[in-house]
Each structure stands twice: as C-alpha cells, then as structure tokens.
Design a protein around this nucleic acid. Structure first.
Length: 757
RNA sequence: GGGUUUGUGGCGGAAUGGCAGACGCGCUGGUCUUAGGAACCAGUGAGCAAUCGUGGAGGUUCGAGUCCUCUCAAACCCACCA
C-alpha cells in the first residue's frame, strides 16, 4: 500500500505570536483547514513538509509583561506550551522536529546574521531622519506600521522625530518587488495592495532656472501642464531653504516640522509662505514665478518640490486661490465642449500647441526635462528602542564607526526593561560596553533591537535547517509551495519577506527570488451576531469549549464546511451540530458495510466524488469537498447493502478533514494513498439532457452517453431547425428561425419597452 | 479622490458561458417514541397559475449569476503622491 514518496511540498501557515492568551478562533480557522490541505497533499504522494513555530519577540509580549509585572521570556515559554497543546488537540500534522522560536538565540543568531549580510551588502544603513515615533510604545515604528497617522498596535497618534536609525534599503528593490507580483499565484487584492504601497509613478523632472537663487528641480507626472505652472512650492524639509535667512520662512518651517503626521493629514487647509529671494524661470515660457514653502509638499516623494499648476491640480488650485496666484488653463478638459480626445489637447503652449497630452508629455520630457520614475515606497526602519527583540549586532566605535559584532549577541535577561527615554539595553553596562573588533579600543554595543518583522521575514528559510547550528540554511532550500495566513499582513510581513528573499537571492544565498509561490488568505470568523469578535463586545466564541464538547474533528469539519474558506463568516452553533451529525452518519454507514459489490450507481458517484474532492481540496474549496462527501454518504445509506470498498474510499477521502475519526475507523489511513477515480465509472451509460427550441426549454430526454449529435437530434424529435447547438451531455438547442409567435427575450423587450415608457 | 474585491432563498453557501439555488442549517408534515430529543421519510426561491427570479440599467451571445459598459451598495488597501 505504501506509495513512493516523490516531490517535496512545503506547506506553511504563518507562525503564531505567543502573546497573553491561548490560540483563538482565528488561529484555528487558519490552521485546521490548512492542515487538511497538507494532509491531503501527503496522501497524494507528496513528501509534505509542514512545520510550525513561534513568532515570539515583539511589543505585545513586552507590554503584557510590563502590565503584569512578569518577564516576556517566562511568559513566552508558558504560552508556547499552551499553544503547542492546543495544536495537538486540533489534530495538526506538524513536523515538530523542525520547530523554531524566534526569541531563542539558536534562531536570532541567524536573524543577526541576516542583518550583517544586508549591512555588508550596503542594504542596511544608518541615517538621521524624521522617524515615526509612538509615545505610548516608546519606540520608532516603520511606515508600514503607521495606519492613518496612528500606531498600528496601540492607535496612539504618531509624531515625527529626528533620530539616527537603522534602515533596510527596500526601495532598491521597488521594481523587482513590483515585477515579481506577476509571477506568483496570490490573491489579486493582496498583489494590488502591494502595488499600491510601492506606488510607482512615471513622470519627469524639470529644472526651473534660479534668477536670484539656485535652480529648483521638480517632479511631475504632468509635464504637459508646464505652461500653466505659476508658482513653485517646496517642502518645509527641503535642503534649499534649510538656511533661509527670512524670519517668516524660518518660523513657518519650524512650525511645520513640529506637526505630527496626523495633524498634517487632518489639516486639509493648505498653508505656505512666500520666500523673499527666490524667483525661478519657467523653462517653457521663460517667465519668472514665485517660490513658496508649503507643507502640503512632501519631502519624501519626488524631489520635495512641485510646480504649481492651479488650473489642472486640485491642491495647487486651493493653494493658488488662497494666495491669489494666477490660474492658467493649458489643457482642454472634459468640460470644454469642443474637446475631442479623451486625453485632452494642449492649448496656448507655443510649439506644443494642439498635441494630445500623452504625446505632449513624451515630447516635452525629451525637450525640457528628464524622464523619472518615483515610488511611494520608503526604506524600512528596523530599529526599535525596546527590550524584547533581537539585539542589533553592531558595535559602535568612535574611531572605526559601526562594526559588525560577533554573533550571537545575546539578549540579556533584564529584570528592569521598562523604557525610560533611553532603550532598556542602555542601562545594562555589561551589555553596553564592548571592545571594538577592529581597533580593540573601547566601544559600545548598539542598544536597540530589531523590528519583529525582521524575525518573520526569513523564518520559512530556517525551518528545514532548524537543528543546524553551523548554517542558517543552505542554498538548496526551497520556496514555500503554499502559504496560508491572514490578509492583514498584505503589506507588512509579506512585503518584507519578499524583499529579504530578493536580497538573499541577489547575494547568492538562495536559488529563488519569491518566497511564497501560492498564497491563501483565510477569511475571518465573526461572532454569531455577524460582528467582529471582540472581548469588549462580549461576543467572542472560543474553540476550546467546542473541542471539549464535540471533539476536534467536529470543529474542524464545521470550519471546512460552514464557510467559504476565503470569506469566513459568522459562527453558528446549529451548523456546528450538523457536522457532528454527519460524522455520526459516516460512522454508521461504516459499521453497516458488507462485502458486496458496488452497484453501477455507487461506482459512478464514488468516481465522481473522488474526482471532485481531489480538485476541491487542492483549491481550498473545502465546503464543496464536504458537500460531495455528504452526497456520497447519502447515496451509500440509500443502499440495502453498503459495499465495503466504497465506504473505505469514503473514509480515505474524509481522512484529511476528520483525521481522528478516520484513523479510528481505518487505522493507518493517513499513510494510504488518496483514492483515484476510476475513469470507467466517471460517465454513465445514459444521461439526461435538456432540449431547447429557440433557447427555451421544451423537454428533457435520456440519451446514450456515446450518442452522436445526429442521433440526439433524432431523439429530440424537433424538425425544421435552421441551426442546432449541441453541448454534449448537457443540452441541445434548436434554432427555428425566424421566430414563431412565441418570441425570444430580445423581441419582447423591444416591443414592451416603448409602451412602458 | 485612486485602486482591489464582493453583492445569489429566512440563514451558511453551490454553479469550466449551458436545467440557478448543489450540500447543509432552519422551517412544515409524517414514522417511531409514555414524552421530549435522537433517528428515519417527505416537502421547502416567489406566485393559484401562466410565469418571474442572482443589487440596478444597458450590451455581446442561440443562450449571461458568470463576459463587456455604466450605475448603486458594502468591505479592504492607498491617499495633500504633484
């Protein structure tokens, strides 16, 4: 019975975060169905690798420890044990020999290795910049972790703060990150979210010649509106005005920089101040236009300077109105009645007069500017001023600068890890003081820790080598075949992981450049009232009680059957009981089996069920897979004698879905091959098809499956058709044209509509 | 404002352009039970009917829940991005 193990199949779920409580319904809905898929693949003969670990570093664990006056290390160990027990209870088929825990030195040594590899390749660098600071978390957070101006974790308003920070150069991979999306089997919405986040836009740089001051280069996607540029606006952070002597300018800059991200966003009214000495010349019209400093211009995008074209840009329009600047139209828009192209035609623009905007852009870019592509993506800030994370493996030496430390740099077990202005590790003198590896002089360690997303950006490479202490992984490591996890990671974890893999690929450490070939996001289980489950609402439902009451198979099967996996939906006790009922029926039909030969009907449904279940389990369409099995059971129960061989196939089909029950009924089932449909029985000898005349159903007839179209036409008994459409096994449609009094839909409509109107 | 996705019975949800509502919940009736439950059997989109029905309006097609255009609604992502 043992089949040949062949192709390796790497099935992975996002590893859980062992914070405060136990695994919740969301975890179960992620893990149980994904486990069904992995078990199915195993029975199909794949050498399935299905590991599980713990994403143990991070803020929630640390904050929880602070609140409860415990230590995150101790809590994590306790929680992990609880998680592990729950995962076993769930009946998960995991390769526990290859587990990993991101807060253990055996793991984070290699996270530090990754950091140093990026550092040595110039992809990790330090820079002083305006960073996102969360006062409540007392740490810097990455762009991706700022959600509409607030901290993703605690919803505190984010402020900007100048700070020297470590960054990963994810922007260098913007184009690759974009391009790779076309090659992977991921949900469209996730790809779209990433494209959105990367935010590529193609445009041009145009330089305005300075008359009294320096030249100013702006970025624009609409160079065709250049003739309508009546002012220039610079971001408050722009280097050209950094040392501007004008008091009003200095005051304005200082005020803008104080504002938080959120305040800037909320303050929709444009403000700005005109500079005294800068006047620049429009390269197209030759005229001189004023320069403003305005905080609606972002330093981080384009060149930090924009040309103000009030007639064709909403923001510029608002600004121009407020400061009484000229509004000059240079493009015909939809409102202009005589507009003939979709794209607009250039007017009043000298030698470009009359060109469509797209053409004009191309021509003007080569004449007056330089084409340039910009991205919204920012480099990933990875320093955290907190305790519970992997220490940044860098030693700072006054003479030699930032020097790689010997790894692992062990995170000390601090009794007091409360953030008090400085990062907690700074208080540990033993940790802080170090010797420079280069000059052997006095130096100090970097006291910040790495963003947890660094830990999770590469863990899937580590699993197969979890027990190796000489290497993080080897070049022969394989990408994940199917990755299952929440859609909330669309732009953080999933983007970071892709970046890290691309970087490692470029450095020659691995042989692929996309980590997850296929991505599935499970939906969300809602409370029975259709609301999101929340402790504050008191509507949470916990899986543990149900498992205790009904057994894990019932809960698992309900998760498979009760929802479309990708959509999720509200929890229902009633529907859960129905799956318990179904398992009882399966047991009963199994007990009633006898050594009879299956009837042709049973052979047929057996074959079609096997085929359908195979397809459904492969495509994560669990609900229909269960439905097919239910039909199969119904058919078997209707038999006087239940043929054993068919029932055994049923148990094999169900084994990935109800592993405990299946193993009990058929010991060793999980090592047996998944049933293969007998082609012979897939089609019946006879089939019922629909007869249509002029696309209306007039009859249903039974025909031999192998009948030719001529034979079917004869059997249908319709004559005089001008055209016949025959879909084998489905329908035959006789078009008797022109239409007799009983008319088709279109005629009816054209007659009926005018009189109704 | 830009992008993506989703709109199907009382409910969860099925339908490679080919019989809409598979499968299940719930409900109704029945069998069996002292009774309740369980189990089993039958029915269950709407309408007395002809027929009508997949958010709405058009279109393509012999044929549209499915493809195209517009529109409405919801969810998510991005958003003074030049």
């Amino acid at each position: 019975m043992q089949h040949k193990k062949s192709k390796r199949y790497y099935a992975l779920e996002m590893f859980p975060y062992p914070s405060g409580s136990a695994l919740h319904m969301g975890h179960f809905f992620n893990f149980a169905p994904a486990d069904t898929h992995a078990r199915f693949k195993k029975m199909c003969g794949y050498d399935v690798f299905h590991p599980m670990g713990f994403d143990a570093f991070g803020l929630p664990a640390e904050n929880h420890a602070l609140k409860t006056d415990t230590h995150p290390h101790d809590n994590t160990l306790v929680n992990m044990e609880k998680f592990r027990a729950q995962l076993d209870e769930l009946g998960g088929m995991y390769d526990w020999d290859y587990t990993l825990t991101s807060c253990f030195p055996e793991y984070y040594k290699w996270t530090q290795w990754l950091f140093l590899e990026l550092f040595n390749a110039g992809l990790a660098y330090q820079k002083e910049s305006q960073v996102n600071w969360c006062n409540s978390c007392a740490t810097v957070i990455a762009n991706e972790q700022v959600v509409s101006g607030e901290c993703e974790r605690c919803s505190t308003s984010i402020i900007k703060k100048p700070m020297k920070q470590w960054f990963f150069k994810i922007t260098e991979f913007a184009e690759e990150l974009l391009e790779g999306l076309d090659r992977i089997d991921w949900p469209e919405r996730t790809k779209s979210a990433q494209r959105n986040w990367i935010g590529k836009s193609e445009g041009a740089e145009v330089t305005f010649t300075g008359m009294e001051g320096p030249d100013i280069t702006v970025f624009t996607t609409r160079i065709d509106t250049l003739g309508g540029a009546t002012f220039i606006a610079l971001a408050p952070e722009h280097p050209l005005i950094k040392d501007d002597p004008s008091p009003s300018v200095r005051k304005y800059i200082a005020k803008s920089l104080e504002k938080t991200e959120l305040e800037r966003q909320e303050n929709k009214e444009k403000t700005g101040v005109k500079t005294d000495w800068l006047v620049v010349q429009n390269p197209m019209t030759g005229e001189q236009i004023p320069i403003f400093v305005a905080d609606y211009v972002l330093m981080g995008y384009g060149t930090g300077a924009v040309m103000g074209v009030p007639a064709h840009d909403e923001c510029d329009f608002e600004f121009a109105k407020k400061y009484n600047l000229e509004i000059r139209k240079v493009i015909k828009t939809d409102e202009d009645k005589d507009c003939i192209t979709e794209d607009g035609i250039l007017i009043n623009s000298g030698k470009y007069d009359g060109l469509a905007s797209a053409q004009a852009r191309e021509k003007m870019t080569s004449d007056l500017g330089k084409s340039r592509i910009t991205y919204r993506l920012r480099d990933w800030s990875v320093s955290r001023q907190r305790y519970w994370g992997a220490p940044i493996p860098i030693i700072h030496c006054d003479k030699c600068g930032a020097i790689p430390a010997e790894i692992p740099v062990i995170l000390p077990y601090l009794k007091d890890f409360k953030p008090k202005g400085a990062p907690p590790l700074a208080n540990d003198k033993e940790f802080l003081n170090a010797t420079c590896p280069k000059c052997k002089g006095d130096a100090h360690r970097d006291v910040e820790t790495l963003d947890t997303f660094v830990c999770s950006s590469w863990y899937f490479l580590r699993y197969p080598y979890a027990n190796r202490d000489d290497v993080p992984f080897e070049k022969s490591v394989q990408p994940v075949d199917v990755y299952v996890g929440g859609a909330e990671h669309s732009v953080m974890h999933l983007l970071y992981a892709r970046f890290v893999v691309k970087a490692l690929y470029k450095m020659g450490h691995i042989g692929f450049d996309e980590p997850f070939k296929r991505m599935i996001h499970q939906g969300m289980i809602l409370a029975p009232d259709g609301q999101k489950m929340a402790k504050s609402k008191g509507n949470t439902v916990s899986p543990d009680g149900y498992i205790k009451e009904f057994g894990s198979d019932v809960v698992r099967l309900y998760m498979l059957f009760g929802f479309n996996y990708v959509d999720g939906g509200p929890w229902s006790d009633g529907a859960l009981r129905s799956t318990a009922k179904f398992i009882d029926r399966v047991k009963r039909v199994f007990d009633n089996k006898s050594d009879t030969k299956p009837s042709p009907e049973i052979e047929h449904i057996r074959a079609t069920t096997i085929k359908a279940v195979r397809e459904d389990l492969d495509s994560f369409s669990f609900n229909t897979a269960v439905a097919r099995c239910m039909e199969f059971v119904n058919a078997l129960m209707a038999e006087k004698q239940v043929p054993a061989e068919a029932v055994i196939d049923l148990i094999k089909l169900l084994a990935p879905m109800i592993p405990v029950t299946a193993e009990k009924l058929l010991p060793g089932v999980h090592d047996m091959p998944f049933p293969v449909a007998n082609e012979k029985f897939l089609t019946k000898a006879e089939a019922e098809i629909v007869v249509q005349v002029n696309s209306k159903i007039t009859d249903r007839i039974t025909i031999p499956t192998n009948a030719t179209q001529e034979q079917v036409e004869k059997l249908a008994g319709v004559t005089g058709a001008q055209k016949v459409i025959y879909i084998a096994g489905k329908l035959i449609n006789f078009l008797v044209w022109p239409l007799p009094p009983i008319v088709g839909k279109s005629k009816e409509k054209s007659e009926g509509r005018p009189s109704e109107k």
